[in-house]
């Protein structure tokens, strides 16, 4: 066997060994009892403490909102990394568009498509969804404009500077909302304890800062993803 074949064989054997270890590990995976106690508390008292019907949003944005701040930071880091990596070339401003049929078909239904992320973001605390889902959909809709009509059309209208400013100000707004709790005296990113309006479960305006954080996260994620798309398209000369 050639040297390359022998090296490949060694990698395959190593992979097989890791696979066996992982299969054995999950077959005897123990379930921790203390974690179930935490989840029982969130399920039983989640609605009465946060006034949010969607328990996953309550966990993500109220009980564990610091982890969501970390996730927003990771998105920011990914956008920065791609911007630095692809900074060597010029932004592509080509006129390559899709066919006439595609453009006419989408242009007629495009405004209606924006209703979905709007609904999902604003009702994030009442039904499945939230800031991330709506933000990614908004980003995909903006990328669709760039794909349909060409970057020569979409870049002057939605420049990279505007996207960066949206992302920075969303990150700052997240932190300012958290600092409101510190100013009040109850803790960073505390929701009802910091005086945000609680309301009754099921209303659109309820659950403290959950709708506000959903909107902030939606804008941040959308701006970040469109920035990544523009950076990946750089021409590289």
């Amino acid at each position: 066997m050639s040297r390359k074949g022998k090296r490949r064989q060694r990698w395959i054997v190593l992979g097989v060994l890791i696979c066996c270890a992982l299969v054995l590990g999950t077959a005897i995976l123990p379930m921790s009892v203390s974690a179930e106690r935490v989840s029982d508390h969130y399920i039983r008292y989640g609605v009465s403490e946060t006034a949010a019907l969607n328990l996953v949003s309550a966990v993500l944005l109220d009980y564990r909102s610091f982890d969501t701040l970390g996730e927003a930071t990771v998105i920011f880091a990914a956008v920065s990394a791609v911007s630095v990596l692809m900074s060597g070339g010029g932004l592509s401003r080509n006129r390559r568009t899709l066919s006439n049929l595609a453009r006419c078909a989408v242009a007629n239904i495009y405004p209606v498509l924006w209703l979905f992320p709007l609904y999902v973001i604003l009702h994030g605390h009442l039904s499945p969804g939230g800031g991330f889902h709506g933000g990614v959909t908004m980003g995909v809709l903006l990328i669709m404009i760039s794909v349909l009509y060409g970057t020569a059309f979409s870049l002057p209208k939605l420049s990279l500077t505007a996207l960066s400013y949206t992302e920075y100000s969303s990150a700052l707004a997240f932190i300012l909302v958290g600092l409101a709790g510190v100013v009040h005296g109850s803790g960073f990113l505390s929701n009802i304890g910091a005086g945000f309006f609680k309301g009754s479960p099921g209303d659109l305006v309820s659950a403290g800062f959950l709708p506000l954080l959903n909107v902030i996260i939606g804008f941040k994620v959308a701006a970040g993803l469109v920035s990544i798309y523009y950076q990946l398209l750089r021409s590289g000369d």
């Binding site: 974690a35 935490v38 989840s39 969130y42 399920i43 328990l55 966990v59 982890d67 970390g70 991330f132």
Partner: peptide
């Protein structure tokens, strides 16, 4: 209900 905490981790 199913457990909501791993759902939040999965979303992240």
């Amino acid at each position: 209900y199913v457990d909501p905490v791993p759902h939040a981790l999965a979303l992240t």
